[in-house]
């Protein structure tokens, strides 16, 4: 067997390499094209189109008219009106913004802390614990619209929730849904009830990945259950806490379903249940101003992007 001359030698292996790679890349393209294509169109193209649209005046049918920053001016004027105390119907975006910030400030911390507490208790190795996990997770698999419908009934003036409350705080019986001072809190309570179970499961997964011997070592070092939680569990849960808070922020800031059902598309009494998401919907599909809706959704996008970015920047630990 004579070796081939070197000139052939260098080119040949490359060719197979290319043939193989070409074949593999072609197969891969075949397999991912639909999934990737759909997401690029409905995700990226749509996102960039929204930015583009936010500089145009349009009614879905006629020609698009470039208006520069006019659509953003609508938002700014709305906020200025709101800040100077205009009635809520004259400053819908401001109303939605104010509500959603308050709502988020309540929902995200409470649901995160509640989820951690539930997870820690449900992570005990005791009998029947699966039943409790099922109970806590059940609201999370139930449609938010249906949850909201049921809670409207429970939140009635003479409803079940006020009945339970009088055992703790006698005499406190607001008309949650119809009172503009309580509507947003009612929605927040429903949201917390509905999502904390979902995040509990995330924390359960994280808890189960903490090695047992770390706890045993801490026990030998003399740490009781409470100190073990503070010094071991919490720091090790930190990446998951960041994840849950970020997901919670994204969900809370664009809350729509619960407000739609519990407050109605106009935001209920005094606009107390109005949100940015509802406002975008109304701009786009009721007032038929897609340009303004796009500008408002760009605003929401940056609101979410900045809050989640700042939060991650501040609290994210180095990648594991």
């Amino acid at each position: 067997m004579k070796p081939k001359p070197f000139s052939q030698l260098s080119s040949k292996p490359k060719r197979l390499l290319e043939k193989k790679k070409y074949r593999e890349a072609l197969s891969a393209l075949l397999l991912i094209s639909l999934a990737a294509g759909l997401n690029i169109v409905f995700g990226y193209f749509a996102m960039f189109f929204a930015f583009y649209l936010s500089f145009f005046k349009w009614d879905y049918i006629g020609p698009m008219e470039f208006v520069g920053l006019k659509n953003y001016e609508v938002i700014v004027k709305d906020i200025i009106r709101g800040l100077s105390g205009a009635f809520y119907t004259f400053a819908p975006f401001y109303t939605g913004l104010r509500n959603i910030l308050l709502y988020t400030a309540i929902v995200v911390p409470v649901q995160t802390i509640l989820a951690i507490i539930l997870a820690v208790f449900a992570n005990q190795k005791i009998k029947g614990v699966q039943f409790y996990k099922v109970a806590y997770f059940l609201p999370a698999v139930t449609c938010p619209v249906i949850v909201a419908l049921i809670f409207i009934w429970l939140f009635m003036k003479n409803g079940f929730i006020n009945y339970m409350i009088q055992f703790i705080a006698p005499g406190f019986a607001p008309d949650w849904i119809n009172d503009k001072n309580y509507l947003l809190y009612a929605i927040a309570l429903v949201a917390i009830w509905g999502t904390s179970g979902h995040f509990m499961v995330s924390f359960l997964a994280a808890l189960q990945s903490i090695p047992r011997d770390v706890y045993e070592a801490a026990m030998l070092d003399g740490a009781g259950p409470f100190r073990r939680f503070i010094y071991i569990t919490l720091p090790l849960l930190r990446p998951m806490i960041v994840y849950v808070v970020v997901m919670g922020l994204i969900g809370a800031l664009q809350m729509f379903d619960l407000a739609w059902v519990m407050a109605g598309s106009s935001g209920g009494p005094g606009g107390a249940g109005y949100t940015i998401a509802l406002d975008i919907y109304n701009e786009a599909f009721i007032k038929l101003r897609p340009g303004v809706a796009a500008a408002k959704s760009v605003f929401l996008f940056f609101l979410i992007f900045i809050t989640t970015y700042v939060f991650q920047k501040k609290y994210r630990v180095l990648p594991r």
Partner: peptide, 17 residues
């Protein structure tokens, strides 16, 4: 894996490709 350089023979043929 595909070699970057050299030849692999099995029996009496080059199998690089």
């Amino acid at each position: 894996e595909t070699p970057d350089e050299g030849e692999i023979w099995i029996g009496d043929r080059i199998v690089n490709e």
